[in-house]
Computed example of a mutant assay.
Amino acid sequence: MSLKFERDTVRETVNQAAANYATNKGGFVGSAAAAVAEAASGNLPGTSGKHPIAEVVGTALTGGRQNAGTKGYLAAYLRQLEDNPLRTKMLTAGTLAGTQELLASWLAKDRNKHGHYFTSRVPKMAAYGALVSAPLGHFLIWVLQKIFSGRTSLRAKILQILFSNLVIAPIQNAVYLVAMALIAGAKSFHQVRATVRVGFWKVMRVSWITSPICLAFAQKFLPENTWVPFFNLVSFVIGTYINTVTKKKRLSALRKKHFGEGRAPGGGPRPEDYPPLGPNPPY
């Protein structure tokens, strides 16, 4: 039996079964079966029929049949970004910030007292991303684009990069450090100020290395309405790395304090000082 004949037979069987089910049962299940049959027969625009269930689900998630044949998830996201820019950016930034904290905790093996990676910082970071970072970024990028609207010369692009690094980045980084201090438990102005003073120039150095490259890439290849999500994605990757390294350093210091300063004869840490499983030392 040829592959083509077998595929046609399967499609006919699915079509017939779905039609019968939709006729006899109706409702959501019958409609879903009919949609799968339509995709399997290759009649759903923009689909190949090779993976009918996945194609039906993808079509439903990207706006239904009226959007079938478009560029899929990215096109639907960009459409939402254009129609509801602030809401979409808030959802994006909140999701990325919460995911970043959870991923960094997993990579650094940073567990709470119950042995879970989903610590109280995860929803706090998600709230920061959605309610602080996204609106602030939306406003600052709007200011940047407003100032340089219609200016496409090389001089204007260089000035745009300088404005981003000397005005926008310091504001965003200062707000970020303040938020991180509060999330970490700072209770006084002096504690918050100390956090900002210690971390500001370190964060700024990272920004000054990555920001010009990212902004130049955005200027060259991306439409302006996608800049904030793009910068959020870059920040997600860099932030996850920095967050992971920071957590590992803090946990190392906590373990030394909690389990003692003893060393093995060779100068390295004793294996029993660093239990592989279970919650981290209390802090």
Rank of each mutant, 00 (worst) to 15 (best):
Thr119Glu: 03
Glu101His: 10
Ala18Thr: 04
Leu154Asn: 12
Ser31Glu: 11
Thr92His: 02
Pro281Phe: 11
Pro275Lys: 00
Phe5Val: 05
Ser252Ile: 02
Phe221Ala: 13
Arg197Phe: 12
Ile147Asn: 01
Asn15Cys: 05
Thr88Asn: 08
Val196Leu: 01
Thr59Asp: 00
Tyr241His: 09
Gly150Glu: 04
Ser164Leu: 06
Phe231Glu: 03
Ala169Asp: 15
Lys89Phe: 01
Ala127Cys: 10
Gly58Glu: 10
Thr9Tyr: 11
Leu61Ile: 05
Thr226Tyr: 10
Ala184Gln: 07
Thr88Phe: 00
Leu159Asp: 08
Gly199Asp: 12
Pro170Phe: 03
Ala18Gly: 15
Leu162Val: 15
Pro123Gln: 00
Val57Phe: 01
Gly268Lys: 15
Thr152Pro: 03
His258Lys: 00
Arg250Glu: 13
Ala54Asp: 12
Ile141Gln: 11
Lys187Gly: 15
Leu162Pro: 13
Asn173Gly: 12
His138Val: 01
Ser120Tyr: 12
Val206Phe: 02
Ala75Arg: 06
Ala218Ser: 14
Met180Arg: 11
Thr119Met: 01
Leu144Val: 09
Phe221Tyr: 15
Glu38Gly: 00
Pro135Tyr: 12
Leu91Gln: 05
Ser188Trp: 06
Met204Asn: 03
Arg250Val: 09
His190Cys: 07
Arg193Ile: 05
Arg79Ala: 07
Val198Ser: 14
Ala181Arg: 06
Phe231Lys: 08
Tyr283Glu: 10
Arg205Lys: 15
Ile141Cys: 10
Val196Asp: 01
Val245Leu: 06
Tyr241Gly: 12
Gln172Lys: 01
Tyr128Gly: 04
Ser207Glu: 14
Leu61Thr: 10
Gly239His: 06
Pro123His: 02
Gln160Tyr: 08
Val198Asp: 15
Pro282Phe: 06
Ala22Cys: 07
Tyr77Leu: 07
Asn243Met: 15
Val29Pro: 06
Glu224Ser: 08
Leu144His: 13
Thr88Lys: 03
Leu154Ser: 14
Ala32His: 08
Ala186Lys: 05
Leu159Pro: 07
Leu74Ile: 13
Gly63Gln: 04
Asn43Asp: 10
Ile161Arg: 08
Ala186Glu: 04
Val57Gln: 05
Leu44Val: 12
Gly185Ser: 04
Asn84Trp: 00
Gly137Ala: 03
Thr92Cys: 02
Ala126Ile: 04
Phe236Trp: 03
Asp110Pro: 10
Ser149Tyr: 12
Trp227Leu: 05
Ala54Pro: 12
Leu78Pro: 06
Tyr274Leu: 05
Ser105Phe: 02
Pro85Leu: 15
Phe259Ile: 00
Ala17Ser: 07
Glu12Ala: 13
Lys4Gln: 13
Gln191Asp: 08
Gln172Gly: 04
Phe163Thr: 14
Pro223Thr: 07
Val192Arg: 06
Ala33Asn: 05
Phe148Gln: 09
Val196Lys: 07
